Every structure is written in structure tokens, then in C-alpha cells.
Amino acid sequence: MSGAGDLAAQVVWLVDRALIADLLVEFARALDERDWDAYAATYAEDGVFRIGDAAWLEGRSAIRAATVSERGCGAYAGTWQGSSNHAITITGDTATTRSYLHGLHLLGGGSADHADGAGWYDCAVRRTAGGWRFTDVRITEVWHAGEPLRHVTSLDPAQPDAPK
């Protein structure tokens, strides 16, 4: 690229990329610090969260309710979400991302009592009046260790005892 117009476009792209990367980091920070409102705020009102075919949640309030519940991340004594290698593709006011994930979930019976998983976060984001927000977060788990990840099989609203 050359010229002042190209430089301005590059600066906008760099700022947008930094804001989207910050959104990915905030997503993990809010989960790990149990800041449920901040976690929910990373989603657009019509956002979707899914874990493979095991869980599908639609809407910011449904995502928050399921996450805080004893069938979601609220079931764990602590979590540590590692998100790295953020690949971000921006197209105007939307973007897609792919990040590596490694999530550790402490079950509460001591440090050896854990459920861990790894794979990818594939996300779609949209520029909103409040900044970049997730419209779709899809987790693909490719590895797990320890106990089964409770929230992977328990958030599906179609299940009779799942959170609404």
C-alpha cells in the first residue's frame, strides 16, 4: 500500500485487530474471574455460543444464565482459559477469528481433581455501537484430560434439565 489513504486504512485495520484481540482476551479473563456480566457483555445481544454438537445457546442472556449455572462454568471451583495464536480476518464491520484454546477446570476436590480440554475457538464478531462483540463462538474440542468436561454435555437447552 502507498499514500496517506492507505496508511489511514492500515491504522484502522491495526486498531480493529487490537480491539478484537482484546475481546478474545476479555472473554477468557471474565470467565476465569467469574465476572459473568463482563463475560456476557462480550456477546452481541443475538450472539450464539456452541460447543461442537453438544451445546447451543442463543442470546446474551441465555449464554450468561447457562455459563453461571451449576451446569456451566459455575460448576467449577476455578477455571483458567488459555487462548493464543489469534488469527483474525476483518471484512468491514465483521470479522472471523480462530484461536487455540486450552481450558483447565478445577472441580473442587483438590488440584488433582480437574477436567481439561483443548482445541479451537472459531468466532464471528461484529462491530456494534458498544465495540466489537461476538455473534458466534464455536468451541471445537480435540483433546481432554482428567474428568469429563461437565459443561460440554450439559448446556444444551433441548435437554430436559438444562438451564433456560
Rank of each mutant, 00 (worst) to 15 (best):
E45T: 05
I88L: 03
E147Q: 13
T135M: 07
A158L: 12
G5A: 14
M1C: 03
L7N: 03
D113H: 12
R150K: 13
R60V: 00
D22E: 15
E58L: 04
T79F: 08
A62M: 08
A145R: 14
A158N: 08
R60F: 00
F134N: 03
A66V: 11
S154E: 14
K164N: 12
W56Y: 15
Y76H: 08
I63E: 03
V152N: 05
D136F: 06
A38Y: 02
T79G: 06
R126N: 05
Y100F: 03
G78A: 15
H86N: 11
A44W: 03
G110E: 09
S83V: 14
L7S: 05
A28T: 13
A87K: 02
D53H: 11
R150H: 15
V142F: 01
G72E: 12
V11T: 11
A4C: 00
W13L: 11
D37A: 13
D136I: 08
Y39D: 04
G117I: 14
L106W: 12
D35M: 07
A62V: 02
W143H: 04
R60W: 01
T153E: 10
A62W: 04
G119L: 09
A28W: 06
V137S: 00
F134D: 00
H86K: 10
T96S: 13
Y43R: 01
S61H: 09
V68N: 02
D161G: 02
R64M: 07
V137K: 07
L149N: 02
L149V: 15
T67W: 06
A77N: 10
G130P: 01
F134C: 03
W143L: 10
C123V: 08
L31E: 12
L149R: 02
D122N: 08
C123S: 14
S111W: 12
A95T: 09
A44I: 01
D22T: 01
T128M: 07
M1L: 02
D53C: 00
I51G: 01
G108C: 09
A124I: 02
D116A: 14
A77W: 07
Y39S: 02
R29V: 12
A55R: 09
S83F: 02
A55F: 09
L14M: 12
S111T: 14
A28I: 10
D37V: 07
D122H: 13
Y76L: 12
E58Y: 02
M1P: 03
A95F: 07
H114I: 14
V152L: 09
P148A: 07
S69W: 11
T97C: 13
W13F: 10
V142K: 00
K164R: 15
R126S: 07
